[in-house]
Each structure stands twice: as structure tokens, then as C-alpha cells.
Deep mutational scan, measured.
Amino acid sequence: NITNLCPFDEVFNATRFASVYAWNRKRISNCVADYSVLYNLAPFFTFKCYGVSPTKLNDLCFTNVYADSFVIRGDEVRQIAPGQTGNIADYNYKLPDDFTGCVIAWNSNKLDSKVSGNYNYLYRLFRKSNLKPFERDISTEIYQAGNKPCNGVAGFNCYFPLRSYSFRPTYGVGHQPYRVVVLSFELLHAPATVCGPKKST
């Protein structure tokens, strides 16, 4: 009989979030998941669920729940959905087409922007091929755009693959930082360890 609440607040209220290319994953298990708490945590810009209804979450049980978190800019949030393409979905964080879970995003301009520009958040701009779903690539190998090998040196047709967002508070919403948490629900042929409040007794 599990009584402890799932530590969603640790994920959502973390002081620092990860850069999207090096997104963070927390496995959540053996706890009571009260998803209604999430609705009250922040004024969400996005709370979209796929393959599951957000209002039914509190009635369900899962084997595992994974919470992935990272920062992107406002106009990239739409890429965090099944079947999307674009720089983020292709080279940084890719959801599977049959994704079961929820994408939660909110504006973090007050936390993640600086007047002089916050350069701490990076994204991958160049990659030889698209990522597979939930693949994480943290390599910093020089990207070869031409025929000549780069031998690890940046220059003509040889690019450092990561680029930094420079978040400034005066930017338009599309270029402001957004914190994203992706909850993916895993149903294996194994005992369910993460249940809503109704199912945990």
C-alpha cells in the first residue's frame, strides 16, 4: 500500500533546468501520483496529453512515469509533440509517434532571462542524422558540413554543433524561455507502482 506522493514538485520547481540537447530525465515510481497538483503548480502555457485524457490521469496506474525536463524558446514548444519536425524535434528531443503522456510548458522569462542575455541554455544546431525517439546526444564533436574532414577544428564548413540561446527579458514571447516537462507513461507487463490517489488504497 503506497502512500508517499510522487515528487513532481522537485521536477517542476527545480531551480535550474537542463539545456534541451542534454535534457534531464527523472524516473518516478512507487508513489501516489496526484496530477491535479500539477494544474495548480504554475499558470501553464501548455498542458497537452496524448493517448490519455488529462482529467482521467488520477484514475490510472502505470509501471513507471518518466519526467523529462529542459528549456526551449516559446515558438519551439509546438515541436514537443508526436510527429513534429524542426531543429528541436530533429536534433535535441524527439517524441515517438505513439507517445503516451503529457507535455507541460510554461513561460520562464522571469527566471531564465537576463538583461545582458542568459547564454547558459544550449541547443544542438547541427547533426548528421535525426534523433530516434527519446535519444539523447550530448556530443560536442565538430560538425563537418563540407567534404573536407574537420579534424576537430572549427572553421570553414566545420561547425561547433551547439548554439546558445541568449534569453533577454525584452524579447518577444516566441523568443522567451519556456520550461518544459514531458511526462511519459510506461505500461509494462509488470506491477503498477505509480497510481492516482483513488487507485492507491
Results as ranks from 00 to 15, higher is better:
N13M: 09
C158N: 04
N107M: 04
V181H: 01
I142N: 06
R168D: 15
S166F: 07
W23H: 04
E141F: 06
A190R: 11
R168V: 11
L5P: 14
R127Q: 04
F185P: 00
S116Q: 14
A89L: 01
K128S: 13
S184M: 08
Y159I: 09
P149A: 13
V181N: 01
D97F: 07
Y21F: 09
F44T: 14
P197D: 12
G155I: 04
K198Q: 13
K114Q: 15
I142P: 11
K56C: 07
C6W: 03
L111A: 11
L5E: 10
F17A: 03
N147P: 12
C49E: 00
I138M: 12
S139N: 10
C49T: 00
G51S: 04
V71D: 02
A190K: 13
A33K: 05
R25I: 01
N147M: 12
V153H: 14
F126D: 11
D34G: 05
S184E: 04
G146A: 08
F134T: 05
A22R: 09
P7G: 10
G101T: 00
G86V: 06
A18H: 09
D75R: 07
E10P: 04
L125P: 15
L60C: 09
T140F: 07
D112I: 01
D59K: 11
P149M: 09
R163Y: 08
R78N: 13
S36I: 03
S200I: 12
S184V: 12
L122W: 12
R78A: 14
L162D: 06
K56P: 06
T15H: 09
P96N: 03
T170M: 10
V182T: 00
N40K: 13
N64P: 11
V182A: 01
P82Q: 01
Y66M: 09
K56W: 02
G117D: 12
N87G: 08
Y91M: 07
K114L: 10
V181E: 00
K132E: 12
Y123F: 10
I142V: 13
R124A: 04
Y93C: 01
F8K: 02
L60A: 10
T46N: 10
L41C: 08
D34E: 05
V115D: 14
A81F: 01
I28P: 01
N151T: 11
R25E: 02
N4M: 09
N151S: 11
A81L: 02
S53Q: 14
Y159K: 12
Q84F: 04
R25S: 02
I80G: 02
Y50V: 02
R16F: 09
Q144K: 08
I138P: 07
R136P: 02
Y39D: 10
H175Y: 12
N13E: 04
D112L: 01
A145L: 09
L5M: 11
G155L: 05
R27H: 11
A42T: 07
I72L: 09
C195Q: 08
V181C: 05
N130W: 05
A81M: 04
P191E: 14
Q144Y: 03
C195A: 08
I2E: 13
P54S: 11
P169C: 05
Y171C: 13
K132S: 09
P96I: 00
G196S: 11
E135Q: 10
V115H: 14
P197L: 15
E10V: 07
L95T: 01
S129V: 12
N87S: 11
F44Y: 12
N13L: 11
S184Q: 10
L60W: 07
K148I: 12
F167A: 06
S116P: 12
P54W: 15
G101E: 00
F12H: 01
Y39T: 14
V71N: 01
S116M: 12
P96L: 00
K48R: 13
K114P: 10
N147K: 13
T170N: 14
L38M: 08
R136A: 05
G174W: 09
R73M: 09
R27T: 12
Y121R: 02
T170Q: 13
T46Q: 15
L183R: 00
S19L: 02
F62A: 10
Q79H: 05
A89M: 01
Q84N: 05
S113N: 11
C49D: 00
V52M: 10
Y93N: 02
A145G: 11
K148C: 08
V32D: 07
Y159V: 10
C61E: 10
L41D: 09
A81E: 06
S116D: 15
D98H: 09
T46K: 13
Y119P: 13
Q144E: 11
T85F: 02
L95S: 00
Y39H: 14
S184A: 09
A42L: 13
D75L: 05
R73C: 05
K26Q: 10
G74V: 01
F160K: 13
R163G: 09
A154Q: 14
Y178D: 05
T63N: 12
P43C: 06
A18K: 06
H189T: 13
N130F: 08
A89V: 04
R27M: 09
K198A: 14
G101I: 01
C49H: 00
R124S: 04
G86Y: 03
S129C: 10
N118A: 09
N118P: 11
S53R: 09
P96S: 06
S69I: 02
S19P: 10
I88V: 09
I138S: 10
N87R: 12
N30Q: 06
N24M: 05
C61Y: 07
L122C: 13
Y119N: 15
R27W: 06
K132P: 05
P7F: 07
P7N: 15
D97G: 08
G117T: 10
H189V: 10
N58M: 09
R127S: 05
C6M: 02
V173H: 12
V173W: 11
G117S: 11
N151C: 08
W106L: 04
E10F: 05
S108F: 02
R127H: 04
N92Q: 03
R179T: 03
I72N: 01
N130L: 11
L41I: 12
E10K: 10
I104Y: 11
L41T: 10
D137E: 03
N4H: 11
V153Y: 09
T170E: 14
V182P: 00
E186N: 12
R73V: 01
C61K: 10
R168T: 12
D97M: 10
V182L: 01
D34S: 06
C6R: 02
R73D: 06
S139T: 13
F167K: 04
L57G: 05
V32H: 09
N87P: 15
I88G: 01
T193S: 13
K56D: 09
A190V: 09
K132H: 10
A89D: 02
F47G: 05
Y66F: 11
R124Y: 02
Y93G: 01
A145E: 11
T63C: 07
A192D: 13
Y50M: 01
T170C: 08
D98Q: 08
V11S: 03
T170Y: 11
T63V: 09
H175F: 11
F185M: 11
G101D: 00
V52T: 08
Y159H: 14
P169H: 10
E135I: 02
T3P: 09
V32S: 11
D75Y: 05
F8N: 02
L131Y: 02
F126M: 13
A154C: 10
Y21K: 04
G117H: 08
Y39E: 11
A154N: 11
D9A: 13
P169G: 11
K94V: 00
R25V: 01
K110C: 07
N109L: 08
A89W: 02
L38S: 03
A190T: 13
V52E: 04
T201E: 14
Q84L: 04
L41H: 15
K26T: 14
Y66A: 06
D75V: 05
F45C: 14
T193H: 10
W23Y: 06
K132F: 07
I80K: 02
L183G: 00
F70Q: 02
V11A: 04
P191M: 06
R25Q: 02
N64C: 12
K148W: 10
R27F: 08
A33R: 05
N109T: 12
G152L: 06
S29T: 14
F44P: 15
T63Q: 10
K128V: 09
A18E: 08
F17Y: 06
R163C: 09
Y178A: 09
D9W: 10
N92I: 02
S29I: 07
S200R: 11
F99I: 00
V11C: 03
N58T: 09
E186S: 09
A192S: 13
R136W: 03
S19N: 09
F156M: 15
C158F: 03
S139I: 03
S166Y: 09
V180N: 00
Y143T: 07
G117R: 07
S113K: 06
D137R: 01
I72P: 01
G51I: 00
Y50D: 01
Q84V: 10
A81C: 01
